[in-house]
Every structure is written in C-alpha cells, then in structure tokens.
C-alpha cells in the first residue's frame, strides 16, 4: 500500500492505495464520489472523465498513485459556489442533453475541457472532440446543442426546434 494525497474539487484528501488501484476506484470507493462512472474496460466510453491538473483524463486509465500530488476535479465539484448549476450543466438541462444520466458526468467534464481550449467550437469540432465519450440515449443531438449553447452560440436555428 502507498500513501497518497491530492486535491479533489479543491479539498485536500489522502488515502492509502494499492499500486493497482485506479483513480476512478479511489474516487468512487475511498472518497465516495460516485458521480464518476465506469462504463467499459477498454478506455473508450468516457463515463469516467475527470480533470487532473486541468487536463481531461479517463480516471479508469490512470492509477490513483499517479495522481499523488495532483489537482483533481470531478463532476461533484462543477456546480457554482452557491450550488447552482454551472453554465455547461445548465445548458445540458435547458437543452435536454441527458437521459439516463450515466454518460453525463463524463460528457460535462469533456465539454468543460473543450470549452477551456476552444471557447466557441463549431458543431463539427464538438462532435470530433466527443470521440471518447459514448452516449447510448441521446443520439448526441442535444449534447452537441447544449455545448454550443454553453459556449454562448445561438442554437435556435438547429433542427427540431
């Protein structure tokens, strides 16, 4: 077992983990932050996306020990300080960008990473960026729309209004 400590959603946390403990398991089991999900075993679905030192990563494909000393952000820390939904979360609600909600934390974290790098992405850029985030429910229509809306673009003209 190795002792590790890191900052998660702005709070200092520590724990003792095995080498094989994945970051996602540390978050879910040790810290009880169960918003980060596991949907596959081949690092492809993106249900587990969190930010480590500001970068989107798949928490199922990184060991907890590798995040020792890092700043980790998860879906649980995304809301505004007063508890209200942040711009991206709000856009997902406004535009029905989620159904079962299982892919949603990863989608929101990926969207946040995208908008940080590219504040006004085109539809094609958003679709391309979401290559590693699988959603089975929404056909992505409203996810893409929500991300466009969150970036301040007018989505009124998009099909199916």
């Amino acid at each position: 077992m190795t002792d590790i400590s890191m900052t998660v959603n702005g709070k200092a946390v520590s724990g003792s983990v095995e080498g094989r403990t994945l970051l996602v398991d540390f978050l879910r089991n040790d810290l009880r932050l169960t918003g980060t999900h596991v949907g596959c075993d081949t690092s492809q679905c993106g249900a587990c996306v969190v930010h480590v030192d500001g970068l989107a990563v798949k928490a199922c494909t990184m060991f907890a020990a590798e995040a020792d000393g890092a700043e980790v952000a998860t879906i649980e820390g995304q809301a505004n300080a007063d508890g209200s939904l942040n711009v991206i979360q709000q856009a997902f609600q406004d535009h029905h960008g989620l159904q079962c909600g299982f892919c949603t934390p990863g989608m929101v974290m990926s969207a946040a990473a995208l908008l940080k790098d590219n504040p006004k992405p085109t539809e094609a850029e958003i679709r391309d960026y979401l290559e590693g985030n699988i959603c089975r429910c929404t056909g992505y229509h409203n996810i893409v729309k929500a991300i466009m809306a969150a970036s301040g673009q007018d989505v009124g003209a998009i099909a199916a209004e």
Binding site: G46, L55, A56, V57, K58, T61, M62, A113, E131, G132
Partner: peptide
C-alpha cells in the same frame, strides 16, 4: 490519435 483524454496521457 485516440480521443482528447487519451492524448492527454
């Protein structure tokens, strides 16, 4: 290569 999260690692 892969997707953004893969490219970050």
């Amino acid at each position: 290569i892969g997707d953004p999260a893969v490219r970050n690692r």
